[in-house]
Design a protein around this nucleic acid. Sequence first.
DNA 1: GCGTTCATTCTACGGGCGTTGACTGATGGG
DNA 2: CCCATCAGTCAACGCCCGTAGAATGAACGC
Lengths: 192, 192
Amino acid sequence: MTEPTARPTRAQQRRLTEDRILTAARQLFAELGYDRTTIRAVASAAGVDAGLVMHYFGSKDLLFARATETADDLGEIGPGGATEALLTSLGQRLTDEPEASLAVLRSMLTNADAADRYRTAAQPQLDQLTNAIPAPDAALRASLLSAIIHGVLAERYLLRLTTLADASPDQIITLLRPCFESLTTTPPDHPA
Amino acid sequence: MTEPTARPTRAQQRRLTEDRILTAARQLFAELGYDRTTIRAVASAAGVDAGLVMHYFGSKDLLFARATETADDLGEIGPGGATEALLTSLGQRLTDEPEASLAVLRSMLTNADAADRYRTAAQPQLDQLTNAIPAPDAALRASLLSAIIHGVLAERYLLRLTTLADASPDQIITLLRPCFESLTTTPPDHPA
DNA sequence: GCGTTCATTCTACGGGCGTTGACTGATGGG
DNA sequence: CCCATCAGTCAACGCCCGTAGAATGAACGC
């Protein structure tokens, strides 16, 4: 009987190496942004040669696309449940921010392709959110909510405004709840 | 009598050229961010040689610092007037966003040095805002307000999320007012 | 066992970058 | 009128980047 951990098959090895590369890439893209992240740096962080990264991923752009593939979903949004769905999602992203999400966030701003890719990927979620908001300007409200969430994440993780970086997710969520509520619900009509 | 527009003195000429360079730099930094903006591109947009830009500004970093010098002030904030002060300032920036401000916004999110410089520059305003908020967690509230504003500006001008890019300042401000109010005022106590 | 596939490395290229310093020619003060 | 000053150009540097392709040696199918 062969040791189970003995020698990885070639396919396993390949998958392992690709994963190491992707992990390193996510970390560096998140930390430095697209431009300042070099293939050589990714390779060396993953303990391989730059040529291998090219061989496996084809180009820096493709590596970036693979590294930032992400499927953060809001899940089902019941009617009126938009606020809680958003707060839950935000809470998660404030607790353990996945590197990939940060990489997207940072790189959207420097890489036009990343921005496009993000726009396309985020549209369904934005639509879903829009549908959950009972207001004529639901689409704009949804955009504002998205902007607020990104703003908070950006200042916490990218800009590292200390007050915001040190705050607990609970504090932030408590303060933001009324905000989200006012945007997800139409105020009772009382004209002029 | 000499023609007033005849021949600019050497000092005038210098000032004019520096201005052309700074304008071009602001535009490019805002559009492309720090890394993708090259001195050569700035120079050619200003109609001069790259060497001249170095000669006048010393380095790319210094050029960036000069191009993004900005003094957007909130003005005096009376007690309880924080919401209106913020909305007014936001309204202005939604109407005619100056290039310099966009350059800062884009670059601070993608360049660590720019982020540092911004943090320092913005601290006084953040403090001012903090002092205008009557709550124990005023500092965090101020940070959140700043995050919201930046989030909205970023998605409107940098990411160009269409819904947000097309909306009128008034619409945005109307939707955001309750948000700002909930963050600048402590809700009436009603424990447990 | 053998030939092939494939993970991985090495070397090298062309290009663009920030930056430098020598150069040129107009300007302007004494 | 002359000479120092200064706006502005030009060519070159060293560096690092993304990328290509040949070389190597172990893993694997037959």
